[in-house]
Design a protein around this nucleic acid. Structure first.
Lengths: 213, 213
DNA sequence: CCTACCGATCGGTAGG
DNA sequence: CCTACCGATCGGTAGG
């Protein structure tokens, strides 16, 4: 009992502060954008001096990059992992979409999906963050396309449907559900996204063996 | 010929500068966001002093509001007016969606749709601009719903389809076409939006007299 | 993790 | 439309 209890706080104080800074940075960035993050603002939020924050990162650029990396872990934990839990095929495709919508609905980030914010913020400006957003977006699209192709191989979706096109339609429903539920402070709007996902998937169902005529 | 030629430049120099500032403000805001607009940045862009810019507006808030108003006029001229040109009914609904997609494709704003940028930037933060974005978004949704309802009355769309739901699906396709084409610097992606619009509308066609069973 | 500092820039004002 | 200025804040550095 009085053995080294370091296990209850395995992290050093420095590591705890580091994590607390990133936690606040993700929250703030989801609301006001990664560009609006300032070291002074974070310092006030955490209750340390500006240099105290700065010491943990050596530039604002690194702070931004570490914030993105931390958000990626949250996304992995809250969306990707639970979203792929269902058995391969159509169920997994539906499960992934539902995992994203649930993540929006539960308001994991107070300003809505961190990466939807990042997409709109860095779609136009050139730079390293833009490139990271491109990579993240392509990863998400590739994941959806893979799930669609697998469902087609299982005979659960029309094989004539182009995976890239259906992925676009699902992606669109997920993203807009995020923006609208945040804008209207109404997680109930996520249901519109659910119906849109259902409609797009149903429209690509095997029932109508669509011909390209 | 040598009569007062004021008509060739009806605007006073002051009015011209004012317009030039708003023009630059719209361009910059579409790329980096309205929050990233600074008076000094605009002054450099236009080639006047910071106070020279400031004199035209009396606060940054007014600059932002006038920039939004100017962008609204562009949107009206480039999307709404041409978009409602087609005859009432399904053609008008399709025409409006096409007008938006064309406006994205033509890169009317260098950073993509000004209001899509504004939606993502001010969906979470409270304030006057947030409220303006809510109003603009509701206007766009109401417009789409009206066009859908009219097409239903003309017997061109399934009357059992909920206008709000179909409007959401179209809105989603339009918005994502904007974000993706900007992100990937590829206006060709707009075609994915076109196909998504066509699919959503076809899915709501009269052919399948969907039962709520 | 702190205080103390750097030059640059912010929104805004005064006075012309 | 200008110069000249205000206090506040920015990212970053020095030195402890």
């Amino acid at each position: 009992m009085d053995a080294p209890r370091d296990e209850t706080r395995r992290r050093s104080d420095g590591e705890q502060t580091h994590a607390a800074i990133l936690e606040a940075a993700m929250r703030l960035a989801s609301i006001e954008g990664l560009s609006s993050l300032t070291i002074g603002r974070l310092a006030r939020e955490i209750g340390v001096s500006r240099s105290g924050v700065f010491a943990h990162f050596r530039s604002k650029q690194r702070l931004q990059q570490e914030t993105i990396a931390a958000a990626r872990e949250v996304f992995e934990r809250e969306v990707v992992t639970p979203g792929l839990d269902a058995p391969e095929g159509l169920a997994q495709l539906e499960g992934f979409c539902e995992a994203y919508l649930s993540y929006v609905e539960r308001e994991v980030f107070p300003g809505g999906c961190f990466f939807a914010q990042l997409l709109a913020e860095f779609d136009a400006p050139d730079g390293e963050i833009h490139d990271e957003v491109v990579t993240f977006q392509q990863g998400g699209a590739a994941l959806l396309e893979g799930l669609i192709a697998t469902a087609q191989q299982h005979g659960e979706l029309d094989p004539n449907v182009e995976p890239g096109q259906l992925a676009f339609e699902l992606y669109a429903a997920l993203e807009l559900a995020n923006y609208f539920s945040t804008l209207h402070r109404d997680p109930g709007i996520v249901d519109r996204g659910r119906k849109a996902v259902r409609a797009a998937i149903a429209n690509a169902g095997v029932r109508d063996a669509a011909g390209s005529s």
